[in-house]
Amino acid sequence: MSQTAPRPEQPFEQPWHAAAFALTVHLHERGLFSWTEWADSLATALADNGKAGNLDGGDDYYTAWLAALQRRLAEGGVTGEDEISAMMAAWTEAYLTTPHGHPVTLGG
């Protein structure tokens, strides 16, 4: 049946959608939150983001997903905006200063 049934076109439109999804599933499997807690957080983020206009279920859906994940991590005392912003700055710096043709790594 797997030869004949249609394959999903493209489960994730963007690599970061896949990464955010995988992070959440993995953290749930590691016991950081229950799936019910997660669904509540996602529903709240979708409702909040939807106030600015109808969400189309693409990029804006994963934007809400990411907001929900950060919310869960903040509530669990795992990490917060300050630490995340600092790490984003470090990665930005790494991207901007990595020489031609080299993989982008932190502190290297």
Partner: peptide, 25 residues
Amino acid sequence: HRLLPSEPALRVKALETILVEKGLI
């Protein structure tokens, strides 16, 4: 600047790095 990942992509990347460093993932 055009080669930088988007803001949410950087944010997910930062989360991954932080969580790996904390031994959570």
